[in-house]
Design a protein around this nucleic acid. Structure first.
Lengths: 187, 187
DNA sequence: CTAGACATGTAACGCGTTACATGATTAT
DNA sequence: ATAATCATGTAACGCGTTACATGTCTAG
């Protein structure tokens, strides 16, 4: 199993939901909050080729309507497996510091591709790691802030707040799964 | 004037403060909240070479103590100019969506390298752009959330909260500059 | 004397960016 | 007609990742 880029996983996740063309993917990356990923043809078409070469997805020409050739891709069983493996692997301290985006991508598709039980496990683990890390950041700010220029201190404060807000989010998200499970209510 | 990577600007900002070696920079990226940047020698030494070739910084061998050779770099006048130009350019809608990290890096050094007046201008501009963008994201969530699976909706909610929290931060940061200016107090 | 911090570098590789190229279909 | 949208691709380039290479100085 080779390495897969973030863009590759984003594509795999979207194709897990339903079959789409390269152009469909580009539109999603261009027009929705998934827009952190590149919508450029120079990124997505080569990514599709790589994934296809690895057997993680398959594309077939869609001759529907008088349109120009249009290749529609869908994830293979192997692709779905790779995706789930990546998605459900344990959360490291380093993920919290350097790969928050990746964690969110993993979580975003989790109900659909791994099931709510995994989502709950993920959120519990995320909460635990954030409770460990966030105070150390706040601590760094308290220790070093006073000697820093205002803009530097504020920039750091922004980073700390991000993590604190994420922790609040993580707890509230977990609560939604739990109440749903216990009470059997819909959101 | 060639393009400079984010790592390049981070280095330029740090060398603006004081002269440092490649190893000093690596330690900063490894041990502080500036750790979003790579501390790997394969990233930082080539970056230093590029910046030096562009005349943005100069390194000199520091023979102090019996130590091994140690090259200490400082930003040139040209390097400081490039940095300030990048730092003080206007904030685009695209910056808000795709380059928040870059905006924070620009702001973090601003008091030192451009002056508090620029910091205030920056925060006003940032607040304005965030007030424009954030509601549209919240709107997207309201419109599309109901049809999304819970984990997807929550992941999106996390993104929206990030922006809302950033907006609150931006306003409170601005307030700190303004009260400081009016009251004439030191931090 | 040897492990670990100090200190600087190089080379292969992967992938995203930018720019270019091509062509069909639909709306004005 | 012609601009816009649909639709897919390629090639050069830059830079970060990973891994390797080398050597010094200090502490146990």
């Amino acid at each position: 199993m080779k390495t897969i880029s973030m863009l590759g996983y984003a594509i795999l996740g979207l194709l897990h939901q339903q079959a789409r063309s390269g152009y469909d993917l580009r539109k999603i990356f261009a027009n929705t909050p998934m827009g952190t990923f590149s919508d450029s043809p120079g990124a997505i078409y080569p990514a599709l080729q790589r994934l296809e070469k690895q057997g993680l997805l398959r594309g077939q020409l869609h001759p529907s309507s008088g349109r120009r050739r249009r290749r529609v891709f869908r994830a293979t069983a192997s692709g779905k497996r790779s995706f789930k493996t990546w998605q459900t692997k344990s959360i490291s301290a380093d993920d919290i510091i350097h790969r928050l985006d990746e964690l969110m991508l993993r979580f975003g598709f989790m109900d659909e591709t791994a099931g709510p039980a995994h989502s709950v496990r993920f959120l519990r683990s995320l909460t635990r790691e954030l409770r460990r890390y966030t105070p150390s950041l706040r601590q760094f700010l308290k220790a070093n802030g006073p000697q820093m220029p205002l803009s530097g201190r504020l920039a750091l404060e922004s980073g700390v707040r991000d993590y604190e807000e994420l922790l609040r989010w993580s707890r509230s998200a977990l609560a939604k799964y739990v109440t749903k499970k216990k009470g059997g209510r819909r959101a």
